[in-house]
Nucleic acid binder design. Structure first.
Lengths: 222, 222, 222, 222
DNA sequence: CATGAATGAGTGTTCATTCAT
DNA sequence: GATGAATGAACACTCATTCAT
């Protein structure tokens, strides 16, 4: 009996530990898979990306993938949520440290320039858009994902930190333009680095930001 | 003898017609396939597009496809050449009819606005870029295709009709920006027509053209 | 009326001529196709041989093929009949010129050595055998073909010219062996000419003939 | 501590077993596929053999096939290696048990007669030869396969057990003849069992062996 | 949780055959 | 008779997904 009890106790602990270790291990596996997925999806596109490649790149097998995600689509959405969430949280934190609108605009500008220097994420973003465009049935799921992203941070709080031209009631055109230019420049640079260098990409992004975000004379105070 | 000659002539013609009918039919099939391919590639993307769908949409079978094209890649390249060639020829014709630089700039502006209203072609263009980006081994073939496009019209003559900011020796940034905005706006509109309407897309394109093509004060004479 | 009559007469002749020319042309086409088929079937095997290759090699198109043959199978059988018929007729002619059994044996020997030097025909023969083996439903057609071959020459007359060991009532083993060795040597030479040269192939064939056909001491008189 | 150790050992074993079961199952599948492939390739020939048939015959699906082999070619080569290796190993074992040359010749004779009674393997062997003949680009791979076969057994040791006429420095003609007769008889029997019965096939093989392997008077001592 | 063998639907491509000319 | 565009069945191979271990 003693032994059995001992074993049980031991097992109890070991299971606890196992669970924790498992959890840790699992988190680690999931994280690695997401990282690999970012690379492979950006490199090959959603359709051409093979789960085997993603798994291999992460040092695991397809089995590990299916232990952490439901399907290829699921992974793609997870990547979207995870990426957007992380990026926006980082932006929010930086904005909150600012004391003036001017500083916040600077932070926002830096945020865009950083993204202009990260082709992988931008190409993945393009994939998301194309995927959504071509899978109308996923619209609901996509909307839910965006909802979760907004919920995960206090989206309204974030928006309040932005200049007036970012406010929801404003015409979206300039925001659209900025994003469009961001993605397009990065794509063009990836496609033909000789035509537009990394430096030109970032510089042009900066110019576009200044042009589109420039407070019209005597407006935009806060 | 006379009759013999007549008969021969007749046969000659009838054979000609036969050959022509064959050729006509063949050309017709090829054209239909290209049209269908444009639609399907734009709708589903290169990877997800199924040859069966393209063939069916054109009213033919996969066999007809392989009688006209070597492979899926081949069709894709044919579409690129055919589309670019046609578009540039049309532009050139319109430019040649102009008597002043000002008129030519107007024609060029209209050309961009038209393209902003043609999501299918723009999405296909995006596919081309992504394809090229992801198939480095196709670079040579892609370059050859562009070479043929330039050769099919007198490219140098076309370039000479354009304002100075389009001249090869100029910095490419503004041209890149214009194309990038064009593609991006169309994509964004296709993705979320509520965020940016068709009209806004075209209007914004016009604004971008005016901004980026505006002759800098005291320059651009011709 | 006159003209019509003239034309009719003319047409009559011309049709005659046309038919003759057509016939000639057709015969020519058929012959060329058979020759190409021999080469291609021997080179690639029945299954892998493409009608397109055969047609192209003969300087015609697949259409010409279907104007002269019913199907791929049909061509194969035609080749079998045509080849066997021609070969046996040639043998028969040569045997008939002989005045003694000894001479006829010499002719027969030469016949085998010739075949040992003709890999194409032997490989095709092997294809026939394999084809027959693998298409039991073709047995009837194959038998009919052999029947026609025998009928086309006077088979019984031919057999009577052969030594006693070739007579139908005899055990077939030696005949089988001779054919088997013939085919096998040619195949082995084609497969690895370094292992057995063309000369060795023919010489070995001669040895095998002498051994298997050698009249047993004081027998085989005629 | 004791128990922990015990548990670990247990887990260790159970994992071992799991792995082994996986491995066993895998080996089993591969073996079944090879067996089916032997039958189907021999029955239909390499070209006409369908992977679906092979898979179905083995009780699996095409997917299982591709989990075990790279391609149809790959399977074919695996079959070649596996078959030749097994056959030669069996021969070697039997030869090694012999105490005299005379006994070894008897074993060798029996080896040939056995093969004469195994049409499936012989037909497959013929397929290999034809395949090699028709795929010159596979020569290198074929040579490598034969190299591996020779390496898998001690080929030199095997050769030393054979009579002098089998030694490498000897003229190959008789060996070629023997193999050629073997394959040819089996083929002829498969093609027309009425012309040459199974018994005649084996008997004739025996006669050929005796004739071709008979030690020339006063030679071949060992 | 992780493995990896197996599944099976799907897809590009080939090729014998048909048919309008 | 000959052409060659078109058909359509067939097939090797891929890959997301499942499941026994």
């Amino acid at each position: 009996m003693y032994h059995i009890a001992y074993i049980r106790v031991y097992n109890y602990f070991s299971e606890q530990m196992a669970v924790n270790k498992h959890q840790q291990k699992s988190e680690e596996t999931r994280r690695k898979l997401l990282e690999s997925a970012l690379r492979i999806f950006a490199r090959d596109g959603f359709e051409a990306a093979r789960l085997e490649d993603i798994a291999k790149e992460s040092g695991h097998t397809r089995g590990a993938f299916y232990a952490n995600f439901e399907s290829k689509d699921d992974l793609f959405f997870a990547l979207l949520e995870e990426g957007a969430s992380r990026r926006l949280k980082s932006l929010q934190q930086r904005l909150e440290k600012c004391s003036s609108l001017q500083d916040r605009v600077k932070v926002l500008r830096a945020f865009y320039l950083e993204r202009a220097a990260d082709p992988q994420s931008m190409l993945l973003g393009l994939e998301f858009k194309l995927f959504a465009l071509r899978h109308p049935k996923m619209r609901a799921r996509l909307a839910a994902a965006h909802q979760r992203i907004r919920a995960s941070l206090n989206y309204e709080a974030l928006v309040k930190l932005l200049p007036s031209s970012w406010q929801p009631e404003q015409n979206e055109t300039n925001k659209v333009l900025l994003e469009v230019i961001l993605t397009g420049l990065v794509l063009e640079h990836a496609y033909d680095p000789k035509r537009i260098s990394a430096k030109q990409t970032v510089d042009t992004m900066g110019r576009a930001f200044d042009l589109l975000m420039a407070p019209q004379p005597n407006s935009n105070k806060r």
